[in-house]
């Protein structure tokens, strides 16, 4: 399953198991039966719109909240009961800083290091997350990205078996995002089990072994990124050097499918002359691409971008979450 070759086996098994987890705040149901596994050594990305229940799910796994129903097991223990035996084995990177405004990064890391017998060297971690120069700056003066990096460093002090990252790259500049992405990839390659929530779907496609999509309190899709994107309707996305005349779009659809796809149609898909060929009956094949290119060539149109087959994870995600919203509206 994974490129690094540490696919989980039955022996090391499951790091996190959630079964039919339910949680309400008063009359408001937040989780209505959430089930998923995080296998040891893998990276699971938990996706979902704001308010879908991601943070509540993570907080139940962390032992901050008790589920109303269902069962949760983290590293073989119940987080609601066995917090003391569990907390030093988990690294948490929370969305909210959770650090006193008057503390400096060095003080925070040295304090949290004292909670372990044999932690990582706090000063080495400071350098590693590129906070060496901000080591004695009060927390309230740190930038959003610096706060996030400090939070990640705190999470790594105890060499956790399970790392829970809640929006780890939020507020970071592109360079810091890239460095954090690389760090997450190297942690995963070294065998750390990682559970990640994020809105950066590009990161998820590159980093995640499995993706669970949470919407309105339940998991609406689960699979590898390839499985999820492959499950969408087949389509072709392309960008042209100039706009298509509206009257030409049915002709292009017919030409590209060789007349075999009566439902196929070409629709505009964004600025800069982007189009989508959708309603295909089968996955795009070389002949389809050749016909599409030939049709454009005859009209002096250059194809400047072409993306085949499945949707990007982002498109698939929007389909899933949007479809669910539509179904909800119909049911109401």
């Amino acid at each position: 399953m994974s490129a690094a070759g540490h696919a989980p086996t039955a022996a090391d098994g499951v790091a996190v198991r959630a079964r039919d987890v339910r949680k309400s705040y008063g009359a408001r149901a937040i989780l209505t039966g959430v089930s998923f596994d995080v296998l040891r050594g893998e990276l699971l990305a938990l996706l979902g719109p704001n308010g879908a229940g991601k943070t509540t799910t993570v907080e139940i796994l962390e032992g901050y909240r008790r589920a109303d129903g269902g069962s949760v097991s983290v590293l073989g223990l119940d987080p609601a009961k066995d917090g003391g035996a569990l907390r030093h084995r988990i690294g948490l990177m929370l969305q909210e800083g959770g650090i006193d405004n008057r503390s400096t990064p060095r003080e925070v890391l040295r304090l949290y290091a004292k909670f372990y017998r044999d932690p990582e060297d706090p000063d080495a971690l400071l350098e590693a997350v590129d906070l060496g120069r901000a080591a004695t700056t009060r927390y309230r003066r740190l930038s959003g990205g610096e706060r996030q990096r400090l939070s990640l460093a705190v999470a790594l002090l105890g060499r956790p078996e399970l790392l829970v990252l809640d929006e780890p790259t939020a507020g970071m500049d592109p360079a810091a995002k890239q460095a954090t992405r690389e760090r997450i990839a190297s942690l995963r390659a070294a065998g750390t089990t990682i559970m990640l929530t994020t809105h950066e779907l590009g990161d998820v496609e590159r980093l995640a072994d499995h993706v669970a999509v949470l919407d309105r309190g339940r998991i609406v899709a689960y699979g590898t990124p390839a499985e999820l994107t492959g499950a969408g309707a087949p389509r072709v996305r392309f960008r042209l050097s100039a706009a298509l005349a509206e009257v030409d779009t049915p002709a292009l659809a017919e030409a590209a499918t060789g007349g075999q796809g009566p439902k196929a149609r070409v629709t505009p898909a964004g600025a800069g002359h982007q189009y989508e060929l959708e309603g295909l009956e089968a996955a795009p094949d070389p002949a389809l691409v050749a016909r599409l290119a030939a049709w454009c060539a005859e009209r002096g149109l250059l194809i400047t971008e072409l993306r085949l087959g499945s949707a990007s994870l982002e498109e698939r995600y929007l389909e899933l979450v949007g479809a669910d919203a539509a179904a909800e509206a119909e049911g109401a």
């Binding site: 030093h88 372990y116 956790p160």
Partner: peptide
């Protein structure tokens, strides 16, 4: 980043053990 000096990425390896209760309480106090 500066993981070059380490054979493993910082934050990985055998999990750290928790400190004794008194040591934690003293540090936090």
């Amino acid at each position: 980043m500066s993981t070059a000096h380490h054979s493993r990425p910082l934050g990985t390896g055998a999990p750290a053990r928790p400190a004794p209760w008194v040591a934690k309480a003293l540090a936090l106090t």
